[in-house]
Design a binder for these strands. Sequence first.
DNA 1: TTTTTATGTTACCTTTTAGTTACATAATAA
DNA 2: TTATTATGTAACTAAAAGGTAACATAAAAA
Lengths: 117, 117
Amino acid sequence: MADDLDPIFKALSDSTRRQILDYLKGHPRLTGEIVNQFPEMSRFAVMKHVDVLREVGLVVTRTNGRERINSLNAVPIRLIYERWLHPFSDYWATALLGIKQVSETELPTDPTTLKEP
Amino acid sequence: MADDLDPIFKALSDSTRRQILDYLKGHPRLTGEIVNQFPEMSRFAVMKHVDVLREVGLVVTRTNGRERINSLNAVPIRLIYERWLHPFSDYWATALLGIKQVSETELPTDPTTLKEP
DNA sequence: TTTTTATGTTACCTTTTAGTTACATAATAA
DNA sequence: TTATTATGTAACTAAAAGGTAACATAAAAA
């Protein structure tokens, strides 16, 4: 019953994993660097979170000697957006205007113009 | 540790709940109508999913006699998009171009232009 | 060579989640 | 009034998720 977006949604549903993805913005990080971002959590717990992200392709890891360099791959996030989130933009627009139903001909709202209502 | 987006992400992490939200697009539905969409699942299981959606504000319910009319509220989805997903659009763009890092001065990509790459 | 360090693995525990059956209530229809 | 039906609640189970401590390995540094 679970569609192919499901593993990505599941991976994103944990706050620690979202923080890891935030941390990987900008540049790749060693596994140990990621671990050190979460001093209140065991190393293994953090590594398992990274594993989950790697399994769904949100993190790509390459090995260099004994180091493992983890980088962000945001393409699955884009997939979530395009295939599931974006179609709802029609409906969040109507909510703001107090309109109940959406005309079929209405164009999708440009989300960049809605930053601060 | 969990931010305020966390309950929304958690609510969206279940495939059945996402299907319910999809079903509520267009027009509101009675609780029983939602239940009938999932004949392989018990009525109570579906109702609990609706409860979860209602708790995070993704579904709004009003009572009319013994009927309960449930409608979609996409504003929390918008919040997820603006506060968490959209900032990653810089990075999925670079992935497509094979570029490793993003310039600080680059403007956010307009997601509406990325519908069909 | 010996030690350090970056990373991986095994085994286990606890809480949460998703699901079930069975029972209860209250508004409408017959 | 009686029966039906739309919805809600109680109590429980099974599996998945998130976490820990302890042990293992292999590359690099001393």
